[in-house]
Design a protein around this nucleic acid. Sequence first.
DNA 1: TTGAAAGCGCTACCAA
DNA 2: TTGGTAGCGCTTTCAA
Lengths: 345, 345
Amino acid sequence: MTSARPTIVDVAKLAGVAISSASAALNDQKGVSTETRVRVREAADSLNYVPSLRGRSLSSKRAFSIGLIVERDFTILEADPFFSAFIGGVEESLAPHGYALLLQIVDDEALNVTRHVELVDSRRVDGIILSELRADDARIPAFEARDTPVVGINPGQGFPFPAVHQDGGAAISALIVHLVELGHTRIAHVSGPAGYVHSRERLEAWKSAMLASGLSPDLIVESDFTHEGGLRAADSLLADDSRPTAVFCANDLMAIGFMNKAMELGYRVPEDISIAGFDGISLGVYVRPTLTTIVTNPHLLGKEAARLLLEAIDGAEAGDAVIEPATFAPRGSSGRGAVPRTPRP
Amino acid sequence: MTSARPTIVDVAKLAGVAISSASAALNDQKGVSTETRVRVREAADSLNYVPSLRGRSLSSKRAFSIGLIVERDFTILEADPFFSAFIGGVEESLAPHGYALLLQIVDDEALNVTRHVELVDSRRVDGIILSELRADDARIPAFEARDTPVVGINPGQGFPFPAVHQDGGAAISALIVHLVELGHTRIAHVSGPAGYVHSRERLEAWKSAMLASGLSPDLIVESDFTHEGGLRAADSLLADDSRPTAVFCANDLMAIGFMNKAMELGYRVPEDISIAGFDGISLGVYVRPTLTTIVTNPHLLGKEAARLLLEAIDGAEAGDAVIEPATFAPRGSSGRGAVPRTPRP
DNA sequence: TTGAAAGCGCTACCAA
DNA sequence: TTGGTAGCGCTTTCAA
């Protein structure tokens, strides 16, 4: 079939109607007689007609796709299962509406902003999902100056666009209570990079929970959300005698890194040290001991974000969406604590 | 800035030239005087002009994006790090050419074909990357009837489009030799679904390697590439007295599932049973013991695939790309084998 | 080298 | 209800 693909002109001609009638019929608009509708449909079917998105895009001023840009080091991305689930959710909302997801991956903050802007300015997408927001994110003013539909994922205070929220604070609280009940008093936190909103939120939630239990939140190490970062955090936190008996890492990957290093140093988990993560990635149940964590719902987060974005694109005054809070999942890596001991040589 | 975005007409007007001259200047075409070129550039800059991809698409008959459809159950996708790395590679080739990646996720084989065809027929993309090919893949005839650029990932014999190949046979061979040298004679294989080309290739490579070592390849369990499938495979393979002392799983996720179940049943790894996977996902070095595996290069696979596809889109007679073979990575989960023993109660 | 004009395939408006 | 037609924003002839 090397012949040129049929256009709406061919369909109209074959059906013996005007192009505008063909268009109306194919788009289920009112004001078309049943007879015309049927004839157009038949003509289209017999020609195997599929509308060109290019023509449609230009005249209807819509790209029928939305953009998502992930800022991640290419090599690190592999280990991060969050986005796969997230994207699955986005797809679920998009597909029924004929929308598609344009995905880009960048490894640099400045480039991240540039790409976002390009995507919108070139009208390649009708809207953008903003994830992994920073406290002072350069993308926010960029989009405020552009009146493009935007939806944020767990943004901070004063975010000027619709957003999807999933609270993790209550679950972090439950985690700390759990650890305290097990007898822990020295509970450390391994945070993500300070620039990120979600890093700060988890840090703050940990602080509040510690204070609420009468403990002072002073054992903190800032890391980078990677497995490698978890290894390093363990090295530094376990180095001296004030070492913690429990640690809450800002994500699961770091927690697993922390756990591996702790065990390598001779600590038993959870007998000597309890470890908890955040995210609830399935990897957490593949490792031994299984990882105590806060289970979030990236799939639903993606699904709702895409839903809100489509509403905004359709011109609705989209509000926020709040999904069920993350839940605390106690598993093997947290348990009865003991006095911290020196690692076996 | 609610004012309408500037178009090329505005640029031409401001520069005082014809639209065609503006277009030629902006696209670095020859036959434009330096003066005109400069004036157009300045006009474009001062207006903050960004060409509309919609107009460009329609007139140049290009979508400037390519499609990738991943067939995966939404929930399983999360645990599979292969595609993240793959997509990172695709991006790396695409970005410098102004191309973008359209990603879709489907959870059903029939829908998979439908979506592929829609993407192409609606001219939403200029080409397609075909991964996870089946022995008798319905997408192949669909695209043969459509003369659209297509690039395959590790396809089987007689694949009618350009493709990227990474051999895993030599590494599988090395793995079996390694196991045999350790004293293993009962080496089982947990395969992927029989329909997939890569399932078959790994199975065949295992068979050849077994025969080459004088062992009979008869301990086979077919599974589904999931962690859960690995658990089940362990249950069935370790159930009776003819149980293996080593097992080669067709991917890492199954290998880790197998390992977890084996340990749960009381086997020590690698003392009682050696376990190996395939893929080389980073998860394999996060688990304990670390996973012996075959390390592939999904990032490079994606990068080369996108490169070939862009060539094909540009009308070149794109050939195949062969990247360095996968490598054997012996790690903690394989070691000195022992006589299989009954699990501790 | 420049400019005018004809599409690309579709939607949407306005008469008929 | 239908048909003609004017765009959407760009690229690409083809004359001048």
